[in-house]
Amino acid sequence: MEFFLQLLINGLSIGLLYGLSALGFVMIFKASSVLNFAHGQLLAMGAFFFLVLVSWLKIPIVVAFLITLAGSFVLGFAVERIFLRPLIGESLIFVIMLTVGLASMFKGLLLFFFGGNLQTYPDFLPAGLALQIGTIYVPPVYVASSLLGGVFLLLFGLFFKYSPQGIFMRSVADNQTAAMSLGVHVKKVFALSWAIAALVAGMSGIVLGIINGINVHEISSIGLKVFPVVILGGLDSIGGAIIGGIIIGLLETFTSGYISPSLRDVIPYIVLVVILLIKPYGLFGLVEIERV
């Protein structure tokens, strides 16, 4: 029983991390229908940027966190402006391959500057954040990441539901021509969605770094695990990303706990294929409203 509970807690927290990582991915897809294969590298960029600020430049944590968010925002904006904008209207394979190319470029750069070794942040989370539920111990990083995840989820939910820019972003995702006819600046919306997505990715990268340490290969592979997560949740649903993440996280920990640790890394993809075959729009994706 205790084993089960420990697995449950682990699964939940890992799942929340997956969900958080998938948030930015969903955002890009929602606004511009781009499948971003460079998402893992965006996560890694944020994590390493934070590392530079905290460990090398010794900037206070909160300031460093804010600077990282701002830097990621600018990075996302620049990526859209330089690489993605010329491809608006091009066919799917070019857009996909462009992000694949970007992934390899970013990864190469990160390896060049930081190498492939594991690096860690200085320990800065207060130990008081840890939770003791009965016999189960929840480490402070998990509590902190859950809190951060919850806050950001709420913020983004509100942003999309109520703010004008959020509504414009949804309108572009819905019907680009109609949005254009009303004067919505579609390119600005694309740029903004990339910027926000990179910001979320940067933040998730930091949290990942706190928990697992920072390693380029490790974080990049999480970028690919985003796919089962978002397909499960529905490619365009923010809440779905979180729930999909949690389901995948639980699945992974329980598979490795009860069946076989080696199955852990492939089980999400098996689920992915099954989901695609029976319910391609995912659990929470928008089913196309088709009427003429």
């Binding site: 690489f83 010329p86 694949v100 470029m105 750069l109 190498g115």
Partner: peptide, 23 residues
């Protein structure tokens, strides 16, 4: 030693440049 990683970078760059300039 670091150049090894730049191989990955150059590879990505080639893909990106071709897609942008000669799809």
């Amino acid at each position: 030693l670091n150049m090894a990683s730049l191989r990955e970078f150059a590879f990505g760059l080639a893909i990106v440049l071709f897609i942008l300039f000669e799809p």
